[in-house]
Write a protein that binds this DNA or RNA. Structure first.
Lengths: 220, 220
DNA sequence: TCGACCATCTTGACGTCGTTAAGTTAGGCG
DNA sequence: CGCCTAACTTAACGACGTCAAGATGGTCGA
C-alpha cells in the first residue's frame, strides 16, 4: 500500500518501520482507543487487528496473547499516571503537595476510566502473570510515600514511618476514583444534598489530611 | 434421573421443583462457586450449565443473558454484605460502630474477593443495565450513613450533613479492600516494614475516625 | 548484483463461546 | 384422558482466541 511512502517518509530513524510500519504501537493505540470507547470486557483481539489494518493473527508476532497486549496498555497507563504525579510532587509544602497528588490521581482516573479499570481491575492481566505491572504501580506508590515522608520529616504529618499511612492515603484516593466512576454520576443528588465530584474529592482529601496530621484514635 | 426422588423428597413445598428441581438457584450457586474458583473473566455460561447438570441453553429459561445471571450473583453478594453490616450497626457507641462496620465490610470483601470484584467491577453487569444492583448498593450505603448521622447527632463526629463524609468513609474502605485484594499479599514487607492486612486496616480506620472527628483542613 | 535468511504478515483451521430457533418432555388442569 | 404450557434438549450460527503453515519482502554477506 505504502510502497513508496517508506522512501518518501523516512521518519522512523531506528527500526520502527517493519513491514507495515510500527505495528506494535499501532495495536496498542487501537486497543486503548477501543477500550475507551467500549470497555475492556467486550474487547476483541480480532477487531483490534482489523482496526490496525492487519490480519487476525498478526498481533501474535508482537504479543504473546490478548492478555499480554492488555497488560502493556495498563503499563502505559501507569507510566502516564506516574508522569502526572511527578509533576505534582515538586511542591514543597507537604499539605499542598498531598492535595496536588490527590488531584492528579483523581484527574487521571476520571479522564481515563477504562484504562484505570484495566490497571486496577485484576480480572484482566493479573499482576501475578505480569510482574512488570506491579512494578509500575509501585513506582506510583513511591511518589506518594516520598510526599508522606517529606511531611513527617517537617513535623506536619504524624509519625515517622511513611509506608502505612501512605497505603491508607492510596486506599482513600483509589476508593474515591472507583466509586466516582462506578456509582456517582456527576450530577447526583442524595437526600437533597448535591454530591458533585468536587465535593466528594474535597471531603476525601480533608479526611486524608486529617488522618495524616492526627494522632491515632484506635489501638494498636 | 431423579424420577422417584421428587416423590421421596418433596421438600420444595411451593413450586420450587420444576423439571429438574430448582434450576435457577442451582445455576446461581454453580456460577458463584466457579467465580470464586476461577474469577469472573473466564466464566463460561456453558460450563455453568454443565456444572448444574443441564444443557447449554437451559439457563436462558431463567436468565435473559450471561450478564443477567452475573448481576443476580452480584445482587446476592450485596444482600450478604448488607446482612453483615446490619449486624454491626447495633453498637451504640459511634466510634465502635464505625470500627465494626469497617471490619464487617473488609471481612466480606476479603472472604469473597471474586464476588466483591463482580459487585464493584462495573465491567460485567454494569449498574446502568441492572438498576436493582445500584439499589442494593445504596442499601449498604444507607447503613453507613445512618452510623455517621448517629455520631454527628451525639457530637462525636464533625458536621451535621452525613452523606458527604459517609461517601469519604466508603471510599476509604472500598479502596482498602480493593488494594488489599489486588496488590498486597498477606505477608508483604515494604521497605523493611511488614504490611499486614490488619495493620493496613487499622491505619485506614484511624484515618476514617480522624476525618470524621476533625475539622476541615482544606477549603471547600 | 544476487541469493539466502528471517522477521513479518496472511490464510485457513480448530475448539469454544453466547445466543437463538425448533423440537421434546412432563406435570397441571379442563 | 387429553390438551396446555413451562422446562428442557438438540442443532445451528457467527464471533472469538489461538495456532500451524505458507507467502512476502527487506537486509546483508558473497
Amino acid at each position: 500500500m505504502t510502497d513508496r511512502a517508506d522512501i518518501l517518509d523516512p521518519m522512523a530513524d531506528h527500526r520502527d518501520h517493519y513491514h507495515h510500519g510500527n505495528l506494535r504501537e499501532a495495536l496498542l493505540d487501537a486497543a486503548e482507543c477501543m477500550i475507551v470507547e467500549s470497555g475492556v470486557a467486550g474487547l476483541s483481539l480480532r477487531q483490534v487487528a482489523k482496526h490496525a489494518g492487519v490480519s487476525q493473527a498478526a498481533p501474535y508476532h508482537h504479543f504473546a496473547s490478548k492478555e499480554a497486549l492488555l497488560a502493556e496498555v495498563a503499563r502505559r497507563g501507569f507510566a502516564k499516571l506516574v508522569a502526572g504525579l511527578s509533576a505534582a510532587a515538586t511542591e514543597p509544602d507537604p499539605i499542598a503537595r498531598m492535595a496536588g497528588l490527590g488531584a492528579a490521581y483523581v484527574q487521571f482516573g476520571l479522564e481515563n476510566p477504562a484504562v484505570y479499570r484495566l490497571m486496577f481491575g485484576a480480572e484482566f492481566c493479573p499482576t501475578e502473570v505480569f510482574p512488570e505491572l506491579k512494578e509500575s504501580g509501585d513506582r506510583a506508590f513511591s511518589i506518594l510515600m516520598e510526599a508522606v515522608a517529606h511531611g513527617q520529616a517537617l513535623g506536619v504529618f504524624w509519625g515517622d514511618e511513611p509506608s502505612t499511612p501512605s497505603f491508607a492515603v492510596w486506599s482513600s484516593v483509589h476508593g474515591l476514583v472507583s466509586l466516582l466512576m462506578a456509582r456517582v454520576p456527576p450530577e447526583k443528588v442524595m437526600h437533597g444534598v448535591p454530591m458533585t465530584h468536587e465535593s466528594m474529592m474535597a471531603a476525601t482529601m480533608a479526611f486524608i489530611i486529617a488522618g495524616l496530621r492526627g494522632e491515632r484514635v484506635l489501638a494498636p
